[in-house]
Write a protein that binds this DNA or RNA. Structure first.
Lengths: 115, 115
DNA sequence: TTTATTTATCGTAATATTGCAATTAACAAA
DNA sequence: TTTGTTAATTGCAATATTACGATAAATAAA
């Protein structure tokens, strides 16, 4: 049915997967990496930098804005985008917390272990 | 057109987004969290634990296996799943590296900064 | 062998995503 | 005002994802 059953999951699971989903496209990773590399604002250069049409970039920017990872400031006819420091930190911590929740133990799917 | 233009992005961007995409569904986060919580193998319990049909869970498990985050061991008629330690560590490092690539600087989209 | 159990696969419907051309909106400069 | 520039929005086509019923495959138990 193409529709995710969000209601049967916890807020944490939905929050984390929402962030991951937005990061789940190479163009959006590329946009973030470019904003980081330039270390300041970028306007329409992203369209040239990434090889996608302007409406497509605009759409990806909106999704990144949707989870707060970037922010845009209007400056004349152009818009400056940059990383949102606070949200970046929060998101990084959320991810780090998730990955650190697993600590390897010996008994797992080994040949003699019973399930 | 619904198809991602992977060829215009770097391997790093494609790898990272591929992982994020798989993590971008609450059911797959829930599966991982349950495997972590049980700290050992789980077989068909996942179907009861998560509220989705058996073919749906099987499909999600296949995607998680696809990026190596979990592994399955056949045991009689059932299959034991657990976290793949090595891949988990590697994935965690890849994510951590990405998030640590941004270090906040002062000049960014502030009212007086020129783009 | 027959039956039961468990998981993977197939097929399909509903919905979501990706990408772009065309257009609109907003502003700056003549 | 008119013209040009930049970015967002709209509309649409192609493809992907999600979910599940039905079925198949594999093994265990009777």
């Amino acid at each position: 049915m193409g529709v995710t059953k969000s209601e049967i999951f916890t807020k944490e699971q939905n929050d984390l997967s929402r962030i991951a989903k937005v990061l789940g496209h190479p163009a959006r990773i590329a946009i973030l990496q470019h904003l980081i590399k330039i270390n300041a604002c970028v306007c329409g250069e992203l369209v040239k930098e990434i090889g996608l049409a302007q409406p497509t970039i605009s759409q990806h920017l909106r999704e990144l804005k949707g989870i707060g990872l970037i922010q845009g400031t209007v400056s004349g006819t152009s818009v400056c985008y940059c990383i949102n420091k606070e949200q970046w930190k929060e998101t990084a911590q959320l991810m780090a917390l998730f990955f650190s929740s697993f600590s390897p133990s010996e008994k797992c799917c080994d040949k003699d272990s019973k399930c």
